[in-house]
Amino acid sequence: MELSIDRLTKHYGRKIAVDCVSTVMKPGVYGLLGENGAGKTTLMRMLCAILEATAGEVFLDGKEITALGADYRDLLGYLPQDFGYYPNYTAKEFLLYMAALKGIPREEAGKRADELLEVVGLTEAASKKVKTFSGGMKQRVGIAQALLNEPKILILDEPTAGLDPKERVRFRNLISDYAAGRIVILSTHIVSDIEAIADEVLLMRKGKLVSQGTVAELTKKAEGKVWELAVSPTEAKVWQEKAAVANLRHEGEQVVLRILSDDRPAEQAVPCDATLEDLYLQSFRE
């Protein structure tokens, strides 16, 4: 299975939301990283065929996805950024409704809904109305509905938003297990989530795809550009203004700064291992 994106572009009037993005995706987990307004959601919506592209095309195994129609949607699982639900439905009823829309037979749908509610830790809340759920619980219902039809292509827009750390770990494990033989595309602001599960990371900026590669490949780009510097609290304030400080931690009387810089920022600064977050911050430094 191969999902190829060919010069995909979306304009809203004069604003360019997605600018000639091209890439090829094979089974694996793809993490979309980018600041707000970078075009991640727009790109995902076009991949779901619910947003018409201004130019460019998306192909699944060589066939244009809008031409595939229902056959493509049959392979698709989608969690939108602002996940909408029917307030008066219980979690189970909502999943059964979505299952019917996905064309899953009733008997199978019941079993599948129960399984997924267990997977996302909502078995006990299955008969409670979704409107009474916390943000994290609603998000878990959203994840469950996306998985109902065991999609071959799973697109998740900010899936970990609102999840507590324990749930995030559960989600990451779930996706890692699920991704075998499937294409999973997810966007998030939580870099550590992508770092933990993404096979490949796509970095987007102002609608353009600026970098793509494995976490190791990308962090390599930041190697030699991340430094640690121990300074006094007064000096720390000065450094924060004059350099890109990725992190700051107190150690006794001193403050240890994590600085992103192409050159050694000070003689005492020591080089350290780069992370994806460093690369992310470096890419969107301005």
Binding site: R45, C48, A49, I50, A70, R73, D74, L76, G77, Y78, P80, D82, F83, G84, Y85, Y86, P87, M98, A100, L101, K102, G103, Q145, N149
Partner: peptide, 18 residues
């Protein structure tokens, strides 16, 4: 209003059948 259209549209029956 319920913001469910993106969900419906990405399902097999979400268009004409619905």
């Amino acid at each position: 209003h319920d913001n469910t259209s993106p969900l419906l549209l990405t399902t097999r029956n979400g268009w004409k059948n619905l």
